[in-house]
């Protein structure tokens, strides 16, 4: 099912921080994980992931480190900082409140 992009746009920070909760990951790994966990509902334009990652790093919510991949090319891994973990918790709580509210309105109408 194709999802309206505007619904996804406001949640990308929450999604990316959530993906990093279980450990460090690199960009393509995050995209693959997102596809798998969301059962392909969330399919970001992959190019837009990197501006988001770099912004989150600049804001101190995630941190990066370089490791050499099998191809011999350096790969950038991202992990959550303490500040990022706090922000994730806040955003998750926000989302739960929001989705509960939407659910109860929609259930009431259908």
């Amino acid at each position: 099912m194709k999802i309206d992009r505007s619904l996804i746009a406001g949640s990308t920070t929450l999604l990316v921080l959530s993906l990093l909760k279980d450990g460090e990951k690199y960009g393509y790994q995050m995209i693959s994980e997102l596809d798998r966990r969301s059962e392909n509902v969330f399919s970001l334009r992959e190019g837009t992931l990197y501006p988001l990652l770099h912004t989150l790093e600049k804001d101190g919510l995630i941190i990066s480190s370089l490791k050499v991949a099998e191809s011999g090319r350096e790969r950038k891994y991202y992990s959550l900082t303490k500040k990022g973990a706090v922000r994730l918790s806040e955003k998750a709580q926000e989302w739960r409140t929001f989705s509960r509210a939407v659910d109860s309105v929609v259930r009431g109408l259908t």
Binding site: R45, E46, T48
Partner: peptide, 17 residues
């Protein structure tokens, strides 16, 4: 195609840096 519009990505990265 999966990467999307290179202009969009490029402008966003330039805006950060």
């Amino acid at each position: 195609r999966a990467m999307g519009d290179f202009n969009e990505t490029g402008r966003e990265l330039a805006g950060i840096y």
